[in-house]
Structures are given as C-alpha cells and as structure tokens.
Write a protein that binds this DNA or RNA. Structure first.
Length: 420
RNA sequence: GGGGGAAUGUCCCGAGCGGCAAAGGGGGCGGACUGUAAAUCCGCUGCGUAAGCUUCGAAGGUUCGAGUCCUUCUUCCCCCA
C-alpha cells in the first residue's frame, strides 16, 4: 500500500508483485540498498507453541523470497522475548511459559525453517539465532541505562499495542510493556552482529519494528528499515487458518500432509490467485493463467496450489500421495491408503464396537452425542452409506474395500478404520 | 478508605418474574444447491443408548425447588475521598 509502484531491486519488485507489502518505512532508501548489494534482514518468531501454523507462513515465505533475491535471511527465535510476552493484538495477558517449554518449542520450530530456507555459512545463507543469547545477559539496571533512556513513556503510550489495552480498560502488565524495548534491542543487536538493516513482520508488528529502526538510527546512526505484510484473511473476511480439525499446523505430527493439502484445496475461489502468489514459488505468468480459469475449472488452480504448498512443506512425494488420496476419495468415491487412518485391534471387532464410540476414537467427532447428532442430520456414513443409527455395532462384517471400514463425517472428513 | 455495578452454556457476544439444560446472535458442525468454492436456504450445537448426570466467578445458606433470594470471598469496571 505504501511506497512507489515500481521498485528497482529484485527483492522489493518481487514482494510487490506477490502481495507481501503492507508498509515500508523508507521505501526508496531500502530499495536502493537492496539494489546495491546483499542485505541482511530478519523476522522474529516467538516460541509460544511447538509448531507454526499457516498464520506464520507469510513471514516464513517472506524470508524465502528474501533469500531467493540473493539476500541473507536471519531467523530470530524469541527464546528471550517469549519469556516476556508480546501484547500486540491481544486483549489479555498471555500465560507465561516455563523455560523448559520454551526450549522444547524452539527445538521443534527449528525443523520447519529448514524446509523453506537454506542455512549455512555462505554469504547468502540463512542463519538462526535465539535472542535469549543477548537478552538474558543484561542486568536490569544495565538494560535500563543502556536502552531505557531512548524510550519515552509518552511515546510508548501511543503505540497501538498499548493503546488497545488501555482503551479497552484491560490490564497491561509491566512485563508486557517492556516487550517493545526488547524487540528494539534485538534489531540493534542484529544490526551490530550481522549488519542487518531490515526487520520484517506482520502488520501488527509495525510499532515494535519502528521502535528498533529508531533506536538503531539514534544510537548507531546506521540505516534501518521496517517492512510489514498485510494481515491475510480469506476473501469472505475470515481469519485464515482453520480446518475441520482445527488449526492448520505446519508440523506433520500435528496436521497430516493429507489434511494440509486439503486445507489448500478448499481455498475460496476469490483467494486462489493471491494465495498462489504468496504461498507458492510458481512463476507469476503461470499463476495468472491459473487464476483466469472460470467456474469449476478453477479447481485445477486449487489443486496446483495444494500441490505446490504441500510439496514445499512436506516434500513432493507427500504432496503426490495427498493429491492421489484426494482424487480417489473425491473423484472416484473409493478409498486410498493415504487417507487418514485409525488402527483398531482386530479382536475389538468380534464382539462389535458401537459406531458412536468408534467415530469418537477415530477422531471424527468430539463426543458420542455429537456423533448421534451427526447421524440424525444425515452426515454420518459408513462405507459411503448414510447411517442414521449411531448406536449400531460395527463388526468385521463392515470391513470393505481394502480390508478397512471407511467412516465419514460430512463430505470431507474421512477416516479409514484398519484392524490390526 | 467510602459508594455503585459486573461476572451466564469452558469459542465469543448476550437475555434470563424462584420451576431452566437456560431466549437470541456470531462462530462452528451437518444437510440441500454447486465445483471438495462463495452466497443462500434448512437442521443441529453440555455429557450420557437411556434412566439420568453435570452447568450460569468461588464457597456456604434460605427454599419442595436457585442462574435468579441472603452471607462471605475472588476478579474487573465506574463514582467519591
């Protein structure tokens, strides 16, 4: 939205063309710097969960674009800041995590970055650092003397993250109030260590990022820039990132590649082009063609999106399996071994097991009551036959094609029950 | 320190004369229509096969019966000092 329409650097041109830019602090200067030579830029990630979800994907892709343009991505994992808690965009204080949890989360998150970035010691290679490395070294008084002097309360009170809480008369704890200082110090530290000139992030990070820019310019008189991405929502206005089964995690253990593929396959028509540009490496002209498809044909574009996005995260083989499983399940009505599977001891089928119980165990529903309601509404199917009685017994006689029982809740949630 | 309000279905907002599993939204789920889309329409939305069980900030009490009345406590807001 902000800045000139045509940039000179490959990096910003690419971001512009693919829809990553929301705001840039000094567009011309940054563009010139990126056109002149290799720059280093960073994005910070908090370690509040063991896995990223699609909401973080824009940022991760942004670092990927940076590297593709020949620049150096720096991934900052907030081992230190996570201990403080970012108040941005939240109207209540988040539960603070223990050191052990944070350490475990960091280890888990690291594996995801390797799928999107090339790490190493070369000049364009990505590096990953944990801000606990420097933040934890500070003593309180030293921190206040070194950095506290550069921040006025007057100004801090004007930031959205703070104002939001105050306006809503929600408490903002002192520890959270300090978050923005720590993030600014991160940027300064990276500027000194890696000559990092740019911090990127979601639009809700603008205030935090600009603080770092100001700090660097003031303390070291060095260039520093901010760049934020727009908040990604679906065309119908919903926050992106929910499926039938919950959040769209990037870890395969928390969301199977099949479900990840399905998430992208179910993209709204109006979002296909935008998502292809943001979340795949497909060339822009190819995307333009896919985007131009009309009516039912746009499903081909959604498959391309699902294939590309899944391949990038889980590998091309996983993507092919997911695509094939979906093709068999949806276009032929059959079963594929790649569908989500639930294993049950063969012995349990002899006396028979209640359908409602089985459906809950298999993860199709949260409670037996829910299964019952599903059945009443005509949404429960066993081997593609609508089943109105959630209490009936499921036995070995229900084993169908491939020696499995195919349970479905609605048209999209399918689980194969496999006796072992 | 004094006075006044508020907390509801463990997703959110929000009604609730002492008989309430608790109005109404949003969201979510299912069905219909389509194209595994959107929009629209319909149904469902505490747990349990059922009898029944457990819910309305917490703990006590009054009552045949309490979300609803009383007491104490917790948290949040407002006004006065």
């Amino acid at each position: 939205m902000t800045g000139p329409n045509d940039f000179h650097s490959d990096f910003l041109r690419s971001l512009q063309a693919r829809g990553y830019i929301h705001q840039i602090s000094h567009p011309e200067e940054l563009d010139a710097a990126a056109a002149r030579g290799r720059i280093a830029a960073y994005i910070g990630f908090d370690a509040t969960a063991a896995s990223f979800h699609v909401g973080n994907l824009v940022s991760i892709m942004l670092l990927r674009r940076l590297q593709q343009a020949g620049h150096r991505p720096i991934v900052v994992i907030g081992g230190g800041t996570t201990k403080v808690g970012d108040p941005s965009g939240k109207d209540s204080t988040r539960q603070l995590l223990s050191d052990d949890q944070i350490t475990a989360n960091i280890a888990s998150l690291k594996t995801t970055f390797a799928k999107f970035l090339t790490f190493g010691d070369g000049p364009g290679d990505a590096v990953l650092v944990d801000n606990a490395e420097w933040l934890e070294r500070f003593g309180y008084i030293q921190f206040l003397r070194d950095y506290g002097v550069h921040f006025t309360i007057n100004r801090m009170l004007t930031f959205d993250s703070v104002k939001l809480r105050l306006d809503r008369e929600q408490p903002l704890t002192f520890i959270e109030f300090n978050y923005m200082l720590m993030q600014a110090v991160d940027f300064l530290e990276l500027s000194r260590r890696y000559d990092c000139v740019l911090q990127m992030g979601g639009s809700d990070q603008w205030g935090n990022i600009v603080n770092g820019v100001d700090l660097i310019r003031r303390v070291d008189q060095k260039p520093a820039f901010a760049l934020t991405t727009p908040l990604i929502t679906t065309a119908s206005g919903a926050k992106m990132g929910k499926t039938a089964s919950g959040a769209v995690w990037l870890n395969a253990e928390q969301l199977a590649p099949y479900d990840y593929w399905q998430f992208w396959r179910n993209t709204e028509d109006a979002d296909v082009g935008r998502f292809l540009r943001l979340f795949t490496d497909l060339p822009l002209d190819e995307i333009a063609q896919l985007e131009a498809l009309q009516g039912a044909e746009i499903n081909e574009a959604k498959k391309a999106l699902a294939n590309a996005a899944t391949a990038m995260l889980h590998g091309s083989q996983a993507a092919e399996h997911a695509a094939e499983a979906a093709r068999v399940a949806f276009e032929q009505g059959g079963v594929s071994a790649d569908l989500p599977t639930f294993e049950i001891p063969r012995a349990a089928l002899a006396p028979g097991i209640g359908l409602a119980i089985l459906a809950v165990d298999a993860g199709l529903a949260a409670s037996r009551s829910e299964v019952r309601r599903l059945a009443q509404g005509g949404g429960l199917r066993v081997n593609d036959t609508v089943e109105a009685d959630a209490n009936r017994l499921v036995t070995a006689a229900d084993l169908g094609e491939g020696g499995v029982i195919k349970l479905a809740a609605g048209k999209k949630k399918i689980v194969l029950v496999r006796p072992v």
